[in-house]
Amino acid sequence: MILFVVAYFAYIIAMVVATWKIYEKAGQPGWAAIIPFYNIYILLKIVGKPAWWLLLLCIPVVNIVFGIWTYNILSKSFGKDELTTLLMFIFGIGILQLGFGDAQYQGPYGDPIAFQAYSGEHTFDFEQTAM
């Protein structure tokens, strides 16, 4: 039992450190990884999704769908594929791969130019900047 508890805490610490490194690779403060709710907000910034998705991630069952979607966008933002998404969602190994591996942040969806073009055309009125 003690061995299980020690292994579990080691896994949790590794996940926190890997998430911290992912945030830093994406140009965000690493300490944001340990602040509840704020860490999700920063993750949504990294993957290029609006802040109101945080509400969707708080709704039971809906959060599973949007959580997988967010992980998929995160893996693509680091140039990885759906296997990394699967590893993130099922085992958490994908988080370790992104944090400790050689993956480099390439912008939301992995293509910042295409993302800027898309997001410029597909915004809500309240997201428009005042001129």
Rank of each mutant, 00 (worst) to 15 (best):
Lys80Trp: 02
Gly94Asp: 02
Ser75Tyr: 08
Ala14Glu: 11
Ala117Glu: 13
Phe115Gln: 08
Ser75Trp: 10
Leu83Ile: 15
Leu57Asn: 15
Leu44Glu: 06
Tyr23Arg: 05
Met15Ile: 11
Asn39Ala: 04
Ile2Pro: 01
Pro60Gly: 10
Pro50Ser: 14
Phe124Pro: 00
Thr70Ile: 00
Met1Gln: 04
Phe9Ser: 12
Ile13Tyr: 12
Phe124Gln: 12
Ala7Tyr: 11
Tyr71Phe: 13
Tyr71Ile: 01
Gly110Cys: 03
Trp52Pro: 00
Trp69Ser: 02
Leu43Asn: 12
Glu127Gly: 13
Gln104Arg: 10
Pro29Met: 06
Tyr38Leu: 15
Phe78Lys: 04
Trp20His: 14
Ile59Asp: 05
Ile34Pro: 02
Leu98Lys: 09
Gly27Asp: 07
Leu55Phe: 14
Ala130Gly: 03
Trp52Gln: 00
Glu121Gly: 09
Ala10Ser: 12
Lys80Pro: 00
Ala130Asp: 05
Leu43Trp: 09
Lys76Pro: 01
Ala33His: 07
Phe115Ala: 05
Leu56Asn: 01
Phe9His: 04
Gln104Tyr: 00
Met1Trp: 05
Gly79Pro: 02
Asp81Arg: 11
Val47Leu: 10
Ile93Tyr: 12
Ala117Leu: 12
Pro50Met: 09
Tyr23Lys: 09
Gln128Phe: 05
Ala33Gln: 07
Ala130Glu: 09
Ile90Asn: 03
Ala18Cys: 06
Thr123His: 13
Phe124Asn: 07
Tyr38Gly: 09
Met15Gln: 13
Pro36Glu: 04
Ile113Met: 07
Trp53Pro: 00
Ile113Glu: 15
Glu24Pro: 04
Pro36Phe: 06
Trp52His: 00
Glu24Trp: 04
Ile95Thr: 15
Val62Tyr: 14
Leu54Glu: 00
Leu56Glu: 01
